[in-house]
Amino acid sequence: MKLWEITHSRSGDKGNISNISLIVFNKSDYGLIKEKVTEERVKQWLGNKIKGNVERYELPQLGALNFVLFNALDGGVTSSTSLDKHGKSLSSFFLQMTI
């Protein structure tokens, strides 16, 4: 199963830190993403782009997880030379993850 089948997501940036929310469409799937979408899996899935740690915060009452990705934006929006300086597209690549 791909994450996009049961969740939606949005990414944002603060300096060189990206954060990506992962929100279930149906609350009954929250247990599944909490079990499967670990900090380690996210770091592994997004690969070399994420140079630092991944931290996960849990919001069960909203059926949501919030991932904070350190050193993840090639220096951040005001100095990066990459095309997607904000990392806005990361949420879509995240949703392609298989669980």
């Binding site: 939606h8 931290e55 059926g63 949501a64």
Partner: peptide, 17 residues
């Protein structure tokens, strides 16, 4: 709706607490 409000609540947030 709940989906758009949840996305906005967590937008550019690190530790929600």
């Amino acid at each position: 709706n709940t989906a758009t409000c949840t996305e906005q609540l967590l937008y550019e947030i690190h530790d929600p607490a």
